[in-house]
Amino acid sequence: MKNFTSAKLKKIISNIFSHSFLLILVLIWIAPLVWILLTSFRGEQGLYSTEIIPKTLTLSNYTRLFTETEIFNFGLWFMNTLIVSICSCIISAFYTLAVAYAMSRARFKMRKPFMNMALIMGLFPGFMSMIAVYYILKGVGLTEGYFILVALVLVYSGSAGLGFYIAKGYFDTIPRAIDEAAIIDGASKWDVFTKITIPLSKPIIVQTVIASFLAPWADFIFAKVIAGSNARYYTVSVGLFEMISRENVNQFFTRFAAGAVLVSIPMVILFLSIQRYYSEGNSGAVKG
């Protein structure tokens, strides 16, 4: 009896310990996020504040993002990013699925070489070709005016065909017997692809679409190189990054925080909503 209680006590202590440890860790992980949330409501301007909790709380950082648009037009950037990310996620999803299907189902001479090439090209640092991409886009006149947005779509979706590995692995788990049965019933391979494979691949499609939808919101390097100083065609991230450049940071830091919160909210919602598909996508199409 005595033994039993001491084991129980030990268990309770270790539970208290592990839960408080987790609590401390979560606080560390959340702290920067909370800090930026507080900053976005801070009345006092400036990067540094001697107080951790703001003295005055205000919504003006948010409203000024959309009303004071002479230098930084947040609403416009938001629309730019939305357009770019919608177009690029549609194209990327098509590219990824098309390549993945071809690699999974067709057998042709260039298949293995292509798959090895895709791996090899992924090993070059992406920044290496950035400047070259810029000059190529400039060569065909895609770095002026509205074409900047077209260029961004092309750049973000351009190499999506190389990221087929996860989707291919998923297609590999769909039994070929299903395809063969459909073909015996007179379906063409196109029918198989559009009417069987794609409907069976919802998790992988959601994952691809959302991942490529999120990319333009997070990238600030490519977009900056392509848009240059043309602030009308900035995406949200380039714009926010400009806000806290050395000459602007003191004036705009609280507004940067507000903008960051506005960008993060949809991203968090989308991200949490794909988490479920994420684990499903990695476990295969047909559940035993």
């Binding site: 070059f124 991409v133 190499s159 065909g161």
Partner: peptide, 17 residues
Amino acid sequence: LLFLPILSIVVFTVLPL
């Protein structure tokens, strides 16, 4: 299926590389 993805890989990845 491969035509467009590969074209775009050639233009935006292979050629710049």
